[in-house]
């Protein structure tokens, strides 16, 4: 039986429907799991994404991008392939894409996490014959802090700084992580300021009806000293730039799965490192894979070699495929 999907130098390809999933070179028809730059690239003839993912994609790719939308679980026939999108829990609107050809179902996970973050549509396992999965954090040393503990840690840190009259600058990626932290932050502690890149994404998400707490955009003509003790959400890049100096002797923190490692935490040279990721941890990956019931597993990015070997040991027919997805690289800005 022919494979439902094949791996090409442009991306994951479905011959039956003549489309690509998250391609990294220009193609006519691209099915997109979510709006992060390594999955939704510019230059495709057309895009198909969930209605919840589309606004951010349009914002990032520009008005000329032709984006078609569909709802989660809505069936769509493309050529000889039937396609549906299922929640991946990674960021709002992020999907796993299921492709069925002649009764054979393959699922592309995109990026995913299995715990609910209070913001994204919760991950739902999709039974299939073959599962193409990320494994950004595919080693047993990665085990995430439970959401309630994390919320206490962040608010405790912010409250202590606010009491001492210091700003709390928290670094996080503009799409997903930043909004997840916003949702966790307790607005009773003080005002929340945002870097422009994050606020732009906030505006897009608010406009599509996703509730986010009130935030104040940091602009060049404002005096941030008018907001003493504020929580400042910044992109990792902005934290290293002169922009961050206006907050004086602030306490700095970074939120990422990599913060689980002491070496990385110390290299970041921040006051705090919160272990929070929009990817699945070791337990999450293993649970998710088991829940698909799939025998054939392809791992696309992350600790692919050891994770493939682990899966093979567990009795799966596991393979590594080489892609251009980066997941969540430690040095990504």
């Amino acid at each position: 039986m022919a494979d439902v999907l094949t791996f090409t130098d442009r991306g994951i390809y479905c011959a039956a429907g003549d489309f690509y999933i998250d391609p990294w070179r220009p193609v006519d028809r691209a099915l997109i799991t979510h709006g992060h730059a390594d999955h939704a690239r510019a230059g495709m003839g057309s895009y198909l994404a969930t209605d919840a993912a589309a606004p951010v994609m349009q914002h990032r790719l520009g008005p000329q991008a032709r984006i078609e939308t569909l709802k989660f679980l809505e069936p769509r026939q493309i050529g000889a392939a039937s396609v549906s999108y299922h929640p991946a829990g990674h960021v709002p609107g992020s999907a796993q894409i299921k492709v069925t050809v002649k009764g054979q179902s393959w699922v592309v996970s995109g990026d995913y996490k299995t715990v609910a973050d209070g913001l994204s549509e919760p991950f739902a396992p999709v039974p299939c014959h073959a599962f193409i999965t990320e494994c950004t954090f595919g080693l047993p040393v990665f085990s995430w802090t439970p959401q309630d503990v994390l919320t206490d840690q962040i608010n405790g840190w912010w409250a202590a700084n606010a009491a001492a009259g210091r700003f709390s600058i928290l670094g996080a990626y503009a799409l997903g992580k930043a909004q997840r932290l916003l949702t966790a932050a307790d607005p009773d502690i003080g005002p929340i300021l945002t870097h422009g890149a994050i606020e732009n994404t906030n505006e897009v998400l608010r406009a599509q009806g996703i509730p986010l707490p009130d935030t104040i955009r940091v602009t060049p003509d404002m005096n941030v000293k008018d907001y003493p003790g504020a929580l400042v959400l910044a992109t990792p890049g902005a934290m290293a730039q002169p922009w961050a100096r206006q907050f004086g002797r602030a306490s700095t923190a970074f939120a990422s799965g990599w913060m689980a490692l002491r070496g990385v935490r110390r290299r970041r040279a921040m006051d705090r490192g919160f272990v929070v990721s929009d990817h699945a941890d070791w337990e999450g990956l293993n649970t998710a894979i088991r829940a698909t019931g799939a025998q054939k597993i392809f791992v696309t990015h992350g600790y692919t070699d050891p994770f493939r070997r682990w899966l093979t040991d567990q009795g799966y027919d596991a393979h590594v495929v080489s892609t251009d997805y980066t997941g969540d690289t430690e040095d990504e800005a």
């Binding site: 080693l139 040393v141 490692l261 002491r262």
Partner: peptide, 20 residues
């Protein structure tokens, strides 16, 4: 072998043990 892979990434034996 998986312990060793993890140790290679973490870079510290006590930390690897504490995490896994």
């Amino acid at each position: 072998w998986l312990f060793e892979e993890s140790y290679g990434i973490v870079g510290d034996l006590a930390e690897t043990i504490a995490l896994i």
